[in-house]
């Protein structure tokens, strides 16, 4: 499950074990700049790739995409269909359509949703914040549960570890939508503690955020704990203890930072899990947000919305992972001068 594009072995079989990393290398900043530039370029490629794929997909789709776009009832009226075909440019050559599409994209024009009768940027803008607040809350909650759990159980008594492992196993195995349904059944329909649907305030955020967090907590704890256990087995932990450093300080001051580096290697997975989680959780709880809009749009084959959300979330995803990787380089001094 490792996923770390920077750790490919350099294919230099007999590379000399050159005189140790003795001399501090200059040009660390330049290397960093090169690395960031490369990653930004990759981000642009990804977003363009996503855009191209969705553009192509729309044209590959079986049946008449224009009929699908205007909806079943309107598709009965050939006049409306032809008008839509002209408006969307589907009657023009493919190359021209693609150029137009990229041009629109550059201007931030993501098209018009016939199903919602709104422009796609408006749809996205209206639904962005609920999703962002949900994912942030879910992430923070997962993190706040996982860190103390890992710090407390790493390398400790087998019974505690076993208990924590069991918890992790269950949380990675349990489907988020089922957790959501169970929480709804119990807390909303039985106890009436939280609103069943749509609640936008803080009380409406609780159950969705818990559901989302549970999906992350398992893997987070597991990776943090393994990272800490590995760090605690390292000689530097022994050195620290031999200096008279207490157990808690060894864990917090030394081992935790190594564990956090381990967790940042799955940042891509995390953001992906948050996005998927958002789709499911918003559907279960009937919460407004990009995820629910996307799910509905796919069901209704509302292509402009699908395209728009794909491009926007692809861009967000690459920016977030870039940010995390940047942070990773700040936390780990060994990477600062490393070549990109």
């Amino acid at each position: 499950m490792k996923h770390d594009p920077d750790s490919e072995p350099d294919a230099e079989p007999g590379a000399p074990s050159a005189g140790g990393p003795g001399a501090p290398r200059g040009g660390g900043r330049a290397a960093l700049a090169r690395w960031v530039a490369r990653r930004l370029l990759l981000a642009v490629v990804v977003v363009l790739g996503a855009a191209t794929v969705t553009f192509g997909a729309l044209r590959l789709t079986p049946g008449d995409p224009v009929k699908v776009m205007v909806g079943i009832s309107a598709a009965q009226n050939p006049e409306i269909v032809e008008q839509a075909r002209h408006e969307t440019g589907f009657d023009r050559p493919l190359a021209v359509q693609y150029a137009d599409f990229l041009g629109d994209l550059a201007r931030g024009d993501l098209g018009w949703s016939y199903q919602l009768q709104e422009s796609v940027p408006t749809v996205i803008g209206d639904n962005l914040w609920p999703t962002v607040s949900l994912t942030l809350a879910g992430f923070a909650l997962a993190f706040l549960i996982a860190v103390p759990l890992a710090v407390a159980t790493a390398g400790r008594r087998p019974a505690w570890r076993a208990l924590s492992s069991l918890l992790e196993l269950v949380t990675v195995s349990i489907p988020g939508f089922w957790v959501g349904l169970l929480l709804l059944t119990f807390f909303s329909f039985r106890l009436h503690l939280f609103p069943a649907t749509g609640g936008t305030g803080l009380s409406g955020l609780v159950l969705p955020a818990v559901t989302l967090a549970l999906g992350l907590v398992g893997l987070f704890t597991q990776i943090l704990r393994d990272g800490m256990a590995r760090a605690l087995d390292e000689p530097f932990a022994l050195s620290a203890r031999a200096r008279g450093t207490g157990e808690t300080a060894v864990r917090l001051r030394h081992a935790l930072r190594h564990a956090l580096i381990a967790i940042s290697t799955i940042s891509g997975w995390t953001v992906g899990a948050l996005l998927t989680g958002a789709v499911v959780v918003e559907t279960v709880f009937g919460r407004p947000g990009l995820g629910r809009v996307l799910a509905t749009a796919i069901q209704n084959r509302d292509f402009p919305v699908v395209t728009g959300i794909t491009i926007v979330s692809g861009a967000l995803f690459t920016l977030i992972t870039l940010g995390v990787d940047l942070l990773y380089r700040v936390v780990d001094p060994r990477l600062r001068e490393a070549p990109a």
């Binding site: 000689p235 530097f236 050195s239 031999a242 030394h254 190594h258």
Partner: peptide, 16 residues
């Protein structure tokens, strides 16, 4: 009692 271990690359915390 001070303790010095074998390989200082791993006996010193690489992040500090």
């Amino acid at each position: 009692i001070g303790l010095v271990l074998q390989d200082a690359l791993s006996a010193l915390d690489p992040l500090r």
